[in-house]
Write a protein that binds this DNA or RNA. Structure first.
Lengths: 291, 291
DNA sequence: CTACCATGTAAGCCAGACTTACATATTCAC
DNA sequence: GTGAATATGTAAGTCTGGCTTACATGGTAG
């Protein structure tokens, strides 16, 4: 147990150590990036504090006394250990790939198609994508950035809105003819489509399930196959509107209903420091979302 | 080789270490005698500096991350080593007897008769007397204080005049009758007396030797026997005047000649810090010399 | 003798370290 | 549920330890 209050000023110990390494106040000052006078005064203060003679001043050049040397050696050894640990940790951290957690929908629709650009604009930075339907634990040493769909209110985490996009119900015009919004409760007798392994649609369905006619079943399909099946008129799709936007605009899909809740894709991080690679990634994702 | 400039602020490292020991900014602050806010800010600065997340802030109470713990452990270990060395050195130094070097004449005439008083007024302090005719090396770890006879100009050392006392030539009035000063060259046919093992008289004799009649020889006697022999008329004594002062005043010895050179007994130390026991001793000797 | 270099000291400056005040969140007891 | 206690963070102001600057002294080399 170190008695912190009894320990002499660390600045003075450091000055003695640098003097020990160099044998000169001028050189020690250069090492510490201070003037020789600062070193001289710190060492003198240390002598007074400890009641020891740490320096032999009988010659023109200073020499450390036996006591001075012992203390300086201990300081150098101690702080050398600290330096080593820090170098190891910051080195590890710098080299470790960034782990990004996101839904498979987002990975497939947004991230993977753009990954080559990130790698081109950020050479040497590596990325690991952890595709999960649920929010993974976010924090140092694991998932550092999550791209999640939701309302942005994850407790203990910081969330920055990336793309505001509600869940939408869409269908091919041929399947559900007509114009304008439809009350979801009126959509009966249709098969439903959702994306396999994501939470966006299933959250919506579990929220609205009591009010929908799901008697014809809900089919879960992976990735873009939901959109394909919807366009082909094989069912009503529940999907994040952003992903259906192009088809809606082109008239291939009709927007039947849009969820009122403000939901979207967020950049989610844990409060605390982010590594440079994480910060780079966040900046890049922002730019990509802005398009 | 520690890269001093790359090392983070030692104050911040210390704050992290104290936080690691306590798990609370408030308790760490108490340990360091600073406010909790100081600890909080230092740790945060350290995180920013290193680009690492050192603390897990997800709960009410702080917990160190794996990295934070590693660094804190290294700091504690390193400074604990420094603390141990310092404790050992200051402990040793405090307990080590003070070594005082002086001429046998001074030891016999001044120091030893008074030693009981020093020991009475400074319980627990121990003294070692190193009686030598010549000036011993003065410095930390060895002779810390010397009581020397001379002109006070020892290079590289600090000298404080204690007793100004020239060398004197004295003799019993019966041996050398008369009154007033005598030219030393006129003292021929007499045997001479000096103190054995001291430098005061022998320095004088070697300085004046060419001008004195030493044909009847120079007898070296220990300690007070010089004064005894002089009083008995067995020879002319060369001695520091201070030691013959009482006999001169009482008329037992006649002052024949007094050296012009300003010489005396000096407290001699090496520049640098003195241990408390050395400082106590010096203070005491001063008081004793003042009478 | 001059120039250069090393160290020490004193005095003034100033930025890092700290305090203080306030805010927010959590926990506990009633 | 409410209020009190406790923990941490943040911002802004304070202050003092650490530093710079200027000067002095001493040693060395040419």
């Amino acid at each position: 147990m170190v008695d912190w209050l009894a320990l002499p000023p660390l600045t003075a110990l450091r000055a003695l150590a640098a003097l020990s390494e160099t044998g000169s106040t001028v050189a020690a000052g250069a090492r510490l990036n201070v003037s020789h006078a600062a070193v001289s005064q710190q060492v003198k203060l240390l002598e007074e504090r400890l009641g020891l003679s740490l320096v032999d001043r009988s010659g023109r050049q200073l020499a450390l006394s036996a006591e001075g040397r012992q203390i300086a050696d201990a300081v150098i050894e101690g702080l050398s250990g600290v330096e080593t640990v820090i170098a190891r940790l910051t080195g590890q951290e710098a080299a470790r790939p960034l782990t990004v957690s996101c839904t498979p929908a987002f990975a497939g629709a947004f991230l993977l198609p753009r990954l080559a650009d990130f790698q081109k604009t950020h050479p040497g930075q590596s990325l690991m994508i952890d595709p999960t339907a649920t929010l993974k634990e976010v924090g140092p040493g694991g998932v550092e950035v999550a791209l999640r769909y939701g309302g942005g209110d994850w407790p203990g985490l910081e969330a920055e809105l990336l793309i505001l996009t509600p869940v939408a119900i869409v269908a091919a015009p041929g399947l559900v003819p007509g114009d304008g919004p439809v009350n979801p409760a009126d959509l009966s007798g249709y098969p439903w489509l959702q994306e396999l392994g994501t939470s966006e649609a299933s959250d919506f369905l579990s929220w609205h399930g009591a009010r929908l006619d799901l008697s014809q079943g809900v089919t879960s399909l992976p990735g873009n196959m939901v959109l394909d099946a919807a366009r082909d008129g094989r069912g009503i799709a529940v999907i994040a509107r952003a992903f259906a936007e192009a088809d809606i605009a082109a008239g291939r899909l009709r927007l039947l209903y849009e969820d009122r809740r403000k939901k979207g894709y967020y950049l989610v991080t844990r409060p605390g420091h982010l590594r440079p690679v994480a910060r780079d990634f966040i900046r890049w994702v922002r730019a990509q979302a802005r398009g």
